[in-house]
């Protein structure tokens, strides 16, 4: 049993390493879905691996035995985990759950703070703010609202403005807020997934860029729109407060991608990740079966 448990704990690190590499072989839409699935699988793997180790390691403690009253010989034969390892696993699991809960609570609080804003007067799906600072974003949730400042509208010529709106509408249409939430929460649970979260964030923008470019019929127009909007926001501190390091190169990557060839998915090149997903799933199943058998010994 415990060999597969250690595989379960190794998997998140491997998935986190392979995930971002996938983006070289997959079109943005497929990459976002793949990265999100990897993040969820890696989190489940982490949670289950730690839980099983904790149960195995703490099974022989006095407190548990007072309740379970297992047969000592049978329990010893079931080869449980060393107690210190079990305690460490339990501690890590608690930390992961605390981080996850805090991130989930924070996201809920933020989404709730933004909810009343969808009732602001809108022209169709567009809410305009009379602000010089160029900014444009999609609100989370199903209400489908794009918020754009007058500064942004005035910074872009009409055709580039339409591309910008199409980009935001793509975010709404595909519910990118949910993919972002999943990767953020997964990275909160297991910090090794930080790069997966960042990679997914870029691919989400790439997905919206490609959608907008397709609708406009010109990837070059989309590249110009992005370049002009980015230059317009330079030096304006307001909207870019506390921007995270990984975001700083996002515009460069996006503009370069829009000037390059249209992306296509080559799933066959993604085989290492697919193999790892299969092995992780098998390890999850195997560990679950072994845990069931162990619990029977623990508390017959």
């Amino acid at each position: 049993m415990y060999v597969t448990v250690y595989l379960l704990l190794l998997a998140p690190g491997l998935l986190a390493a392979l995930g971002p590499a996938l983006t070289r072989h997959l079109a943005p839409a497929a990459a976002v879905r793949a990265l999100t699935a990897l993040a969820i699988l890696a989190s489940a793997s982490t949670a289950w691996g730690l839980a099983v180790l904790a149960i195995g390691g703490l099974a022989r403690t006095g407190e548990v035995q007072a309740y379970a009253k297992s047969d000592p010989a049978a329990l010893a034969a079931a080869d449980p985990v060393p107690r210190t390892l079990g305690a460490l696993a339990a501690a890590l699991l608690v930390i992961a759950l605390v981080r996850f809960t805090r991130a989930a609570w924070r996201r809920q609080r933020d989404v709730r703070a933004l909810t009343p804003l969808r009732d602001l007067p809108a022209a169709g799906d567009l809410i305009v703010l009379d602000t010089e600072n160029p900014d444009a974003y999609a609100l989370p949730g199903r209400a489908g609202r794009i918020v754009v400042t007058s500064g942004m509208l005035r910074a872009l010529p009409h055709d580039e403005c339409q591309v910008m709106l199409a980009h935001e509408r793509a975010h709404l249409r595909h519910r990118h807020d949910l993919y972002a939430a999943a990767t953020v929460l997964a990275a909160a649970f297991n910090p090794l997934l930080g790069r997966v979260r960042e990679s997914a964030a870029l691919q989400i923008e790439r997905w919206a860029d490609e959608d907008a470019a397709a609708q406009a019929g010109s990837r070059h127009l989309a590249a110009r729109s992005l370049a002009r909007a980015a230059l317009a926001t330079t030096g304006r501190a307001g909207g870019l407060r506390g921007s995270l390091a990984y975001l700083r190169h996002q515009v460069t990557a996006r503009v370069a991608a829009l000037q390059a060839a249209s992306p296509a998915s080559c799933w066959s090149a993604a085989w290492p990740a697919l193999v790892l997903v299969l092995l992780t799933t098998l390890a999850l199943a195997d560990t679950t079966g072994a845990l069931g058998r162990f619990l029977e010994v623990l508390h017959p």
Binding site: L114, D135, Y137, T252
Partner: peptide, 28 residues
């Protein structure tokens, strides 16, 4: 009141690498 905007808002542009400025201007 919001902590991490990037987690809840899908923005068109988040930040700009100052080194990229010249390249973007050239594109335009």
């Amino acid at each position: 009141g919001i902590g991490d905007r990037t987690a809840v808002l899908q923005r068109f542009v988040d930040a700009l690498d100052p080194d990229a400025e010249a390249a973007l201007r050239a594109l335009l």
